[in-house]
Simulated assay, not measured.
Amino acid sequence: MRLAVLSDTHGNAIAFEAVIQDLKSQSPDAIVFLGDIVMRGPQPSECIHMVRSLEPLAVIRGNYDDMFTRFPAPGWVPSNDKEELVLRAYEYDCKRIAHDDQEWLANLPVERAWTFEDVPTEMYHAGPDSLVNVVYPWASLDEMDILNRSEHTRLVLFGHVHHAYARQGKGRLIVNCGSVGLPFDGDNRASYAIVDFNKRDIAVQLRRVAYDIEKALATAKALKMPDVEAYEYALRLARYPYNDYKKLIQTASS
């Protein structure tokens, strides 16, 4: 069996289109999507429709999908630059995502367990009991051990950290498929994973797909997406831009 594992489009439909084209050459038997379809990119509605058109075996709710459908809390006001940025992204997506798609996002599950061939597998956005925990490729094996519920699990699939990697330890394989729309691991190509099963044997490909970044940026500007300077920094350099947002704005305007 061949499984395609995708995550974190973040509204970047141009990157997602390139991944879907690459998927055709891989002929997966099934597809799973591990969350964060929306927010931070210019085409959230298009990404929702593209995910649904793939008819995935499972779609997991990501932290930004969750935030978008449950935000803001009554009386909440942003208290810093990063929260103001999140509010602008939320308001932008509200104008672009239809109500029925918002309801679909809000009701996605936060985890799935499956057995592929003879391999017990757990699927999350970030990990059990959390949509925001961060486990990077350089984490210790003990830190990796928080990513599964059952000791019988032999494969864990997750997204969230925007760093593609595969790690073996403590009797199981941990696979992060990276980000389709906003990789932050220094490689600005879209990322996803292919997992091949042969009974209990597993083989993993971490695939990188080049796409038209200029078209993605032109789309963001044409649609008047807020904070496009930070988005451009992220797409070009594949680095997390939002902690240095003020510095980016000053550089862009100078």
Rank of each mutant, 00 (worst) to 15 (best):
V135I: 15
Y136Q: 08
A139R: 06
L141R: 08
I146R: 14
H152N: 13
T153W: 03
R154L: 03
L155I: 08
L155Q: 00
L155K: 01
V156F: 06
F158K: 02
H160F: 00
H160D: 07
V161W: 10
H162Q: 12
H163R: 11
H163A: 14
A164V: 00
A166Y: 06
G169S: 04
L173C: 05
L173D: 06
L173T: 02
I174P: 08
I174W: 12
C177P: 06
C177R: 06
C177T: 11
G178D: 10
V180N: 00
V180H: 04
G181V: 00
G181P: 00
L182H: 10
P183E: 11
F184Q: 12
F184P: 01
G186F: 10
R189V: 15
A193N: 09
A193K: 12
I194L: 15
D196Q: 13
F197I: 02
F197H: 08
D201T: 01
I202P: 02
I202L: 11
A203V: 09
L206M: 04
V209G: 06
A210K: 13
Y211S: 04
K215H: 02
K215S: 10
A220L: 12
A220Q: 11
K221M: 12
A222R: 09
L223Y: 09
L223C: 06
K224R: 14
